[in-house]
Simulated scan of single mutants.
Amino acid sequence: MGEGSAPAAEPTPLLRLGAVLYFMGSSMLVQFTTKAVFTNFGFHFPLTVALLQMAFIAPVSYVVARPVLSWALVRQLAPLAMVNVLNVVCGLIGTAGLNVPMFIALRRFTLLFTILLERFWLKKSHDWPTLSAVGVMISGALIAAATDLSFNPRGYAAVLCNDLLTSLYLIMVKNTPGTNGLSTTGMLFYNSVLSLPMLLAATVAKGEPSRMTSFPLLWDTNFQMVLFLASALGLTINHSTFVCTRINEPLMTSTAGNLKNAAMTIVGAFAFGDFIFEPLNAMGLAISMGGAVWYALRSALRARQKSIKDRLLQQVPVIGRDRLHRGGAQPQLTGAPLGFTASGASSALLDGGGMGKSRSESRGDLFERPLQ
């Protein structure tokens, strides 16, 4: 936004909700698709999947956005791309190593890390109901983790790193100076292009290309279709993350992810064959899900209250203008200079006195100038 330009309009509640639903839907699709690639087809090459996703995103986002190519933007966005690469890799390793309900339970810690980073980095405080809801989610996740019969230390470590990096990534998306002059799709282009070399180096270092040649289903049509779908959906999850975080807040994006996980927990328990039912584990998952729903409902209520308050405040000048157009009596503003009405116009000028201007011209000039 250039100097002297008008401030950006506050997003409407409907726009905020649309961004949240877009993020939730994209996240569900990409998680289930990548889980099918790893579990149903046995394709255990997470770095290759991440590389394919970024290779798909880069040309598509450039064609759509046509962003300005600048080394200054490269330098500013390089740290964001590095965090994104680490985040994607940890997420894919965690998805491959854990059943869906357990993966989702551990993803609850994203909220905790977001709150901690906002508190100690951005100096932002949170009220006790917010902290209590997060506590319920974390407690349920710990109960579920303690009774997980398919315990995978590597998967647990990957998901917890994924949680921390996701929180850091969301906060950087919202607060990186280099993102201010870019559209969401343009920012996505830079992020994918800068991520590609790092992902390629990691893939080669891990030896995935040589091992992948012996994968038995590599030329299977069904596998190739699902792998292509997982690569293409990487565009929607990255784009929706940017959109939701820019329109809302990092904590709201984390909350949307937790609310989406409530549905995924139920579906994931039946869609894949790696979930072992255990009563205490199921109870922990239910407690964690309940905390997520509580937090989401409370956030929605607070957003609605804020919207109503803002709408009431915006009605004050509108009421004044309505009275002005009706030609009714103009009430005096408390503490305003003599002759100024609730609409912000001088009664002397409205009568056309001494200025040589029409009523509409005088009224328009005064609406554009602040009261002295």
Rank of each mutant, 00 (worst) to 15 (best):
A296H: 13
V136I: 15
N191L: 15
S5K: 03
L170C: 04
T334H: 09
L52T: 01
V100A: 09
S5N: 04
T130E: 14
A342H: 09
G257P: 13
I308R: 12
N84D: 10
T341Q: 05
R326Y: 09
I266K: 06
A262L: 15
A145N: 00
L80Q: 08
Q332R: 08
I237D: 06
A158D: 06
L21I: 05
A141Y: 01
L142V: 11
T184N: 15
L235R: 02
P209Q: 02
W121Y: 11
V267T: 13
H239A: 11
V60C: 10
A286S: 14
L182H: 05
A133E: 04
L259V: 14
P317S: 03
A348Y: 11
Q330N: 04
V318I: 13
G356E: 01
V89A: 10
P79N: 00
S346D: 08
L371I: 13
L324N: 02
L164F: 14
R75P: 04
S27E: 02
V193D: 06
M82W: 11
F103N: 08
V60W: 15
F270H: 13
M289P: 08
N84T: 05
R321W: 14
T241A: 15
T34N: 14
D220Q: 11
L285S: 12
A342I: 04
P153M: 00
G186V: 09
I115N: 09
S167N: 04
V30W: 10
A205R: 10
M212W: 14
M212Y: 13
K309L: 14
L142Q: 00
S125K: 13
L200I: 09
M54W: 01
Q53H: 08
P79W: 00
F223G: 12
